[in-house]
Amino acid sequence: MVKLSKMMMKNIEGIGKTLSEILVCPLTKQPLRYCEKTGSLISDEIGVSFPVVDGIPCLVPKDGKILEDEGSSISGGLASSSDTKEVKE
């Protein structure tokens, strides 16, 4: 219970309820995911993370960082099919 309330606090400290309801990725207009570990907002579709500075999300495209190898689901069907091949081998 304590953990949960702490998480809630963190989320509110993170970006706040109002913002988490209305903010989307500036480029794809798809929902953003709040990453607690890095404290950033992640747009999964294009694999870009936007920083949150002092509780202010920075959603200018230039502020975004491309997630190189992890946490991006950009590699959709093609990549996963090649993955499975390699796993089989």
């Binding site: 480029l27 294009i46 694999g47 870009v48 495209p61 230039k62 975004g64 491309i66 190189e68 190898d69 992890e70 946490g71 991006s72 950009i74 590699s75 093609l78 990549a79 090649s82 993955d83 390699e86 796993v87």
Partner: peptide, 26 residues
């Protein structure tokens, strides 16, 4: 698991990210 597996196909991802980088840059 999927992150680990994805490492093997990082070249492909990089190719795509390169494309997306150019499209999101102002």
């Amino acid at each position: 698991n999927s992150i680990l597996r994805r490492n093997s196909s990082s070249i492909l991802i990089r190719a795509i990210t390169k494309h997306s980088r150019s499209s999101f840059c102002t």
